[in-house]
Design a protein around this nucleic acid. Structure first.
Length: 223
DNA sequence: ACCCAGGGTCATA
DNA sequence: TATGACCATGGG
């Protein structure tokens, strides 16, 4: 066993060679990334794709065009993504923030810290949604932490016992890896891919690419 | 029929 | 601060 830094690097290498580059975030524009970040909250990506597709078909996937829709029209378009009434309000709140800065470019050109604060001030945008936008839309080197990330790190024994707050886990990655948005984006995507592919689909973990470094597989972990 | 998705908010204790 | 309820659709 090595330092946390070495382990984090080894996990990344193992995941990358097992699954290949994931190429996140799948979207044509930065605005689409932002919309997807809201729509995917506690929602299967498959359903988000449907909603995005409907928005595209309606010609509504730009801030200007989306702002022209009534609340009811927007809600109907994003319905397949679930929680559609909430998410409609959240998208409209995000549109107002964009409007305050003139454009998506204007908003995303804010310094990282200021952009994060402003995104978090939007009702319905929490840490993960904000950081997804910072990383995948604005290109800032910010590590996105989700429930999968915490579960996997617990299994690997990198979060000794504690409850693991969001910023704590984020700090673990950011202080031990080069500040490279490309690396962070790929790493986060690989963790999600791995959770779906192995942890969820095969609870007993046959053939897990992380087996050599995983406490859970060695029989020590719970979760 | 049940569980869960690439979360966040709000009411309670 | 720390749980629990709630939001809603679609697939396993």
């Amino acid at each position: 066993m090595g330092t946390k830094r070495e382990i984090l690097v080894e996990i990344y290498q193992r995941l990358l060679s097992a699954y290949g580059p994931q190429g996140w975030w799948p979207a044509d524009t930065r605005f689409e990334v932002m919309v997807g970040a809201i729509l995917t909250q506690a929602t299967a990506w498959r359903n988000v794709e449907r909603a995005i597709q409907r928005l595209k078909a309606a010609g509504a996937l730009s801030p200007e065009r989306m702002a022209r829709l009534s609340e009811g029209e927007l809600a109907e378009l994003i319905r397949p993504a679930g929680f559609f009434r909430q998410k409609t309000r959240r998208l409209r709140a995000l549109l107002r923030l964009i409007g305050q800065h003139g454009s998506v470019e204007g908003l995303l050109s804010l310094p990282a810290g200021e952009l994060r604060r402003q995104l978090l001030s939007v009702p319905g945008v929490g840490p993960e949604t904000a950081d997804s936008i910072l990383l995948y839309a604005a290109g800032y080197p910010v590590f996105v932490v989700d429930a999968y990330t915490k579960r996997i790190l617990h299994r690997l024994g990198l979060l000794s016992g504690e409850k693991a707050g969001y910023e704590e886990v984020q700090e673990l990655f950011e202080s031990n890896l080069p500040r490279d948005p490309k690396l962070y984006g790929e790493y986060h995507a690989l963790l999600v891919r791995h959770a779906k592919e192995h942890c969820r689909a095969r609870p007993r973990c046959p053939g897990c690419p992380l087996a050599p470094v995983c406490n859970f597989i060695k029989g020590q972990g719970s979760l």
